[in-house]
Design a protein around this nucleic acid. Structure first.
Lengths: 159, 159
DNA sequence: CCTTGAACTCAAGTTCACTTCAACTTGAAC
DNA sequence: GTTCAAGTTGAAGTGAACTTGAGTTCAAGG
């Protein structure tokens, strides 16, 4: 909390592994906060390192910025997650991962069932037509949730 | 093959579930082909429905357009996948799905190991720092491969 | 012939999570 | 006081896979 304890940008990038541009982006998006030096440079409280770790973990689980913001916003009172918060949150994420895994396994199951059938029919093959919709549009249960579809992101900052 | 057997755009969109814009996009990208009517409208051979089914399936597995093009291009001789092709390809995709599942399970495992630890340390927590990199950059094995990171695509044509 | 809906083209827009760029200022050391 | 790495800003760019829009034409029915 002391003025002496505030970290400059370089320190944060080194210790978090995020690029400065990402840090600024997160600040603009309201995921983290920063004080300013007399000349306008950012000075971060130590706690942001924890928040950044949280952000990276969440993003590895596949949460979007918006979801991360929500999740951080739901933290009661103080800003950085406590042990209890983390406990609750990690169960939440665990469920999400379970869903993702289950979705992939359904897809795999469909694939296995299809091996050698050579069908790939638009009407009968559950694999190419998971929703079992042929003409009308409709949103049924899918093999893959949106959160697992068409990944292929931009090259990532490798930190 | 008969001129009578050529399907117009509306038929294709209805039967494939893809939007016309997507069909045109795939044609532009060289994934499918179309004949033209006297007036310049697209007329598709029946086989493209199969190709489109293939494209949807591949995209569900997480292949990019480019990969799908490659995969279609590797089909020997004729254009639409035969039973044997499908057999070979589905094993390929199966491996890919296995990898994706394994990656999620690693992540889940890391999460379970972390539950209640409250650490989320940038240096010691394998979950927030899967690469075990603190300051230097380096690309080690990750919990999640690029193909599963930060999904959240644009709104999808719901077919 | 006229209408209507389906289809056409081409350019530009969308989303997400950032990065890159250009032009400029700070701040710590010497 | 000089130097220069480190920091600042805002705007624009990236990439994938499409969608949207504007303005025009086609094809089939009556």
């Amino acid at each position: 909390m002391d003025a002496k304890d505030l970290l400059p940008m370089g320190e944060i990038t080194r210790r978090s592994g995020f690029a400065a541009s990402a840090i600024r982006y997160y600040e603009a998006e309201g995921l983290i906060e920063a004080h300013r030096s007399g000349g306008g440079q950012r000075r971060f409280e130590r706690g942001v390192l924890r928040r950044l770790a949280f952000i990276r973990a969440a993003s590895n689980v596949g949460l979007s910025i918006e979801e991360i913001r929500d999740e951080l916003g739901r933290l009661p009172g103080n800003r950085t997650p406590t042990k209890a918060d983390w406990h609750r949150i990690s169960r939440h994420w665990g469920r999400r991962l379970d869903e993702q895994i289950a979705a992939l396994q359904r897809l795999k199951g469909g694939l296995d069932g299809c091996i050698g059938c050579g069908c790939l029919s638009l009407r009968s093959c559950a694999f190419s037509n998971p929703d079992d919709v042929h003409g009308e549009d409709g949103a049924g249960a899918r093999l893959l949730p949106d959160s697992l579809r068409r990944p292929h992101p931009t090259k990532r900052a490798s930190g």
